[in-house]
Design a protein around this nucleic acid. Structure first.
Length: 642
RNA sequence: GCCCACGUAGCUCAGUCGGUAGAGCACGUCCUUGGUAAGGACGAGGUCACCGGUUCGAUUCCGGUCGUGGGCUCCA
């Protein structure tokens, strides 16, 4: 006689064992219809699950995050059923839930086509309409393996072998179709409907490129049609923010076939790029960094010594000169910085020595990885290497993290996650050194009072690192900054300092980047702001436009005035209507549109319109200049104009 | 690098069941002097990504290469 406790604390007693669905029905017919699954004593189960004893029960519906997950998982099953009903020889593998949807990987003799996708989706809708009940059964492990082998489902058999012995092997079925699955699932296929198949892609079995390629079908699924529509709309929004599109629309940069993964910066794009450099230079100079510049190509031998060629070689560009010497184009700045440090003998009294460079590096990335500014083969790092004694690691790291966070705040990124990446499989240096480096970095991170998560095996080949991840305006994560402790390269490259006992010692090198890649950071900013860069970064901060040719002379004068006041301003004196000019520069996301008509000429003022379309009224030239200057000084963080 | 899709004017895209191509926007000239998101007329602009093959003839069909997009893998 089970007594069921519901989430609101109320209790219900039943004469005999009752299913989750039965509990829902006892509460109300509406809930019974909405029930997708149940949570019994914290465990997710099917609605057919029988409760025999007292339990805490929650009915899971599509409104719950877990309910939505179950819905997506069941939709993945529906896809598998549809695929196998059309192509019985396709083998099923795995079909997990992912953000906003699901995918299912199949082994099939040929790639699926977009036409296949349409057929699958149509079949899925038929099967959903048929409203087939979903069954669950358990099988003994050996029997299950034999069962799937007999069906020719070798991947499933392989999966079962990997399931821990204490877990039951469960199968879920609907109609004449059945699949290995942990569950739970929705009670019947009629609950599924708000879904779309979105794309096909190749994917390796178990994500390993040595394994065979499977056919992955992606889909999205939601609680109802409205949510699905909202999701599709969000995708559209993200597409509008795409930095590649904005880059083209605002004429910031382009790519072309002859230079895959390398950026051609146009004047406006380069203005923003330089703005980032100017800003960073100011901040790091104030923090005690010294800027240097090191060669882009250096003899291969140096890269053998550093270990780059061995551990990073497949990402490096090499070049042979007419004298048959082989040079490497630098993929990192560290070896060059060590050369600068090595030049002359340093005392411990000089440390820390902080060498910074806006270093342009080249990395041969796999062609499939390239993606606009976000993944390129030639990029500029705001790179620095800090040479310290082992005792100084903590203090310098605390200072460094403070600088990093302060800079991110200036760009409006208030939410920053930190990840600690420890020793990778491909590395230089023995384990004792790695342990020391990892411990030092963890201690320093704690001292800085920063929470972090661990990213195992993702450190650089020469040392562990912190990764700084920013959250953008639409909630996406971007890894930008890095802080690394390196007990390896200084020794390999022969860096020394003299300690207080006149002994030569090897310094520790801290590697750090804040933007990471300037190209990438700029791409992130474009997406974060949807192209509406704050005034301090906007390539064109203001445009002065005349209404008729009568005001051309004054407009030109106004441009000169503002330019002298340090405003990045352009004139638009074309023979077009003012509405046309407003539209064009609004589309160009210019923060201030300044109109000169006869009224303004008389008072030596400009009518100011903000990027958001607000009329700020006419202002004397001086006031326009000081207003824009104020906006620039605040870095737009407190600017309400948009 | 691997899988799939795609590559036509500066941009967004039509089109050709094989007979060397078209729209809108942008661009140029002219008209228009118009107060806050598109005034009008005319015009110029393309080796249909590249290389081969099939064919009387290829932008179209086939093969390859390069590039782009989405995944996989990897990373800033």
């Amino acid at each position: 006689m089970p007594t069921i406790t519901l989430p609101d604390g109320s209790q219900r007693s039943f004469e005999q064992p009752v299913t989750v669905g039965g509990v829902a029905a006892a509460i109300g017919a509406g809930l019974a219809r909405a029930a997708l699954a149940g949570e019994v004593d914290g465990r997710l189960v099917d609605t057919t699950h029988v409760i025999t004893g007292d339990a805490r029960v929650r009915i899971v519906t599509a409104k719950d995050p877990q309910g939505l997950e179950i819905l997506r998982h069941s939709t993945a099953h529906l896809l598998a059923q549809a695929v196998q009903s059309i192509y019985p020889q396709a083998q099923v593998t795995i079909g997990p839930v992912i953000e906003d949807g699901f995918y299912y990987d199949f082994a099939f003799e040929r790639p699926f086509t977009p036409e296949d996708l349409e057929k699958f989706e149509a079949r899925m809708r038929e099967l959903a309409r048929a409203d087939q009940p979903v069954r669950r059964r358990e099988l003994p492990r050996e029997e299950a393996i034999a069962h799937f082998r007999a069906l020719g489902e070798h991947y499933k058999a392989e999966i079962i072998v990997g399931i821990p012995a204490d877990q039951p092997i469960t199968l879920y079925g609907q109609g004449d179709w059945e699949d290995l699955c942990r569950g739970p699932h929705v009670p019947s296929t009629g609950r599924l409907g708000a879904f779309n198949l979105t794309k096909v892609a190749g994917a390796y079995w178990r994500g390993d490129s040595r394994n065979e390629m499977l056919q992955r079908i992606y889909g999205t699924a939601w609680a109802d049609e409205k949510q699905l529509k909202d999701y599709l709309q969000r995708l559209e929004e993200a597409e509008k923010r795409d930095h590649r599109r904005i880059g083209r629309e605002l004429d910031l940069f382009h790519f072309q076939e002859e230079a895959p993964g390398a950026v051609f910066w146009h004047p406006h794009g380069w203005t923003v790029f330089q703005g980032l450099i100017d800003y960073m230079r100011e901040r790091q100079n104030a923090a005690g960094y010294q800027e240097i510049s090191t060669p882009e190509i250096m003899d291969r031998e140096l890269w053998v010594q550093s270990g780059h060629l061995e551990k990073f070689g497949e990402n490096m560009f090499l070049t042979r000169t007419p004298d048959e010497r082989v040079y490497a184009i630098k993929p990192m700045n560290c070896p060059g910085h060590v050369q600068v440090f090595r030049h002359g003998l340093h005392s411990y009294r000089e440390l820390p020595i902080r060498l910074a460079e806006f270093g342009r590096v080249h990395r041969y990335e796999p062609s499939g990885a390239l993606h606009g500014l976000l993944r390129v083969r030639a990029f500029t790092q705001d790179d620095a290497h800090i040479f310290v004694t082992e005792d100084q690691i903590t203090g310098e790291t605390v200072r460094g993290i403070e600088l990093l966070m302060s800079i991110y705040r200036d760009f409006g990124f208030d939410e920053v996650k930190v990840k600690f990446a420890d020793r990778p499989p491909r590395r230089v240096g023995d384990d004792e050194i790695w342990t020391r480096a990892e411990n030092a970095l963890i201690e320093a991170t704690r001292a800085a009072g920063v929470d972090y998560t661990v990213n195992p095996g993702e450190g650089a080949f020469y040392g562990p690192k912190l990764e700084f991840v920013l959250k953008d305006a639409i909630g996406r994560d971007w890894q930008c900054g890095t802080w690394q402790v390196d007990l390896n390269l200084p020794g390999r490259l022969g860096a020394h300092y003299v300690d207080e006992h006149s002994q030569r010692r090897t310094p520790v090198m801290l590697h750090r980047a804040i933007f990471g890649s300037l190209e990438r950071f700029l791409g992130i900013l474009l997406e974060h702001h949807a192209g509406r860069l704050p005034t301090w970064l906007a390539p064109v901060q203001a445009v002065v436009m005349n209404i008729t040719s009568r005001q051309a002379e004054f407009a030109a004068e106004a441009v000169d005035f503002l330019r002298n006041q340090g405003v990045r301003v352009e004139a638009d004196l074309r023979n077009e209507k003012v509405g046309y000019k407003i539209r064009e520069h609004t589309l160009q996301r210019v923060p201030y549109l300044l109109v000169a008509g006869d009224r303004e000429v008389g008072s030596r003022s400009l009518a100011v319109r903000s990027r958001s379309g607000k009329d700020l009224g006419a202002m004397p030239l001086e006031e326009v200049a000081s207003r824009i200057a104020g906006d620039v000084a605040s870095r737009g963080l407190h600017c309400l104009e948009d």
